[in-house]
Design a protein around this nucleic acid. Structure first.
Length: 269
DNA sequence: AACTTAGGCAACCGCTTTAAA
DNA sequence: CTTTAAAGCGGTTGCCTAAGT
């Protein structure tokens, strides 16, 4: 399935990055749904030449698509390791837990679900899981009870009897994310719509919020033998981060960690 | 049976980050 | 150090289909 507005003959030639083009009359790029033939051409080309150099790939492969489109098609559909079929219950549970920790970091979440793409998870979240949380009276962005969200008085749609099952009373901890290329620099960029935005939308005190996550990560990392602290951002390697995530996604561990942190903060501040 | 509405999802857009020149 | 190109990411769009009226 795939639809997009028809070629639209780009109102002013633009590159795949949306930047103005100055070069001479490029062939009109095809847009919209991919055909089986195009899929085959792309798959065969990538199998032969490997991934990368997406910008020049269409020309080399003989496709009338922009490189971005080729990359997306490959990443989200043609890659051989992509898992097909509905999201399993355990996968759904994992997504929920990861989202509670990571927020809308779809690529990071997808990285922990082998065979699933960020796009797939994002779509699944928006169409299924967010509604599921709302039905449980939880804010899908914060995983906090809707009624308790500051500035919001409205209860869940089906408010009356549908009280949330088990509600974590604290905000999700937000560690620095050193995994994957995008997060390789450690500190989250305020401009990437990541944790800072999330913190803001959670209407939480930012310092307390960050302190909470950092403190939790610090405690954890310390228990693992410590870590560097660069520019105020704890830096951990991928293994540590993975373990950290694992621990966060273990409810009992999470509860214990949170209790410790809350005790620390309650007594210190 | 015909029409309307809502859900699902692939693809595109715009922006940021990273790497190379 | 600055500029530019390439890649990656999250948000959004819009079509198809199923469900509802």
């Amino acid at each position: 399935m795939a639809r997009r507005k028809p070629p639209a003959q780009h109102g002013g030639a633009r590159s795949e990055d949306g930047q103005a083009q100055t070069t001479t009359a490029p062939p009109p790029l095809k847009r919209g749904p991919w055909t089986a033939e195009e899929d085959e051409v792309l798959a065969r080309f990538v199998a032969r030449e490997g991934e990368g150099r997406w910008r020049t790939l269409p020309r080399r492969a003989g496709l009338l698509r922009c490189g971005k489109s080729c990359r997306l098609r490959w990443m989200n559909y043609l890659r051989p390791d992509i898992k097909r079929g509905p999201i399993a219950e355990d996968e759904e549970d994992l997504i929920l837990r990861l989202h509670r920790v990571l927020g809308n970091r779809w690529s990071l979440i997808a990285g922990r679900l082998p065979g699933r793409t960020d796009n797939e998870i994002k779509n699944y979240w928006n169409s299924h899981l967010s509604k599921k949380l709302i039905a449980q009276g939880l804010d899908p962005r914060t995983h906090m009870p809707l009624a308790a969200a500051p500035g919001k008085t409205a209860a869940a749609p089906g408010k009356t009897t549908a009280t949330p099952a088990v509600v974590p009373p604290q905000p999700p901890p937000m560690p620095v994310l050193p995994t994957s290329s995008a997060a390789a620099t450690g500190c989250d960029s305020p401009a990437d719509g990541g944790n800072d935005d999330l913190a803001a939308t959670m209407s939480l005190d930012t310092d307390g919020f960050e302190g909470f996550g950092d403190q939790l990560l610090a405690d954890y990392a310390a228990s693992r033998g410590g870590f560097e602290d660069v520019m105020g951002c704890p830096m951990v390697d991928d293994d540590t981060f993975t373990s950290f995530l694992d621990s966060l996604m273990n409810d009992r561990q999470l509860a214990a960690d949170r209790k410790d942190v809350m005790n620390d903060q309650g007594g210190a501040s």
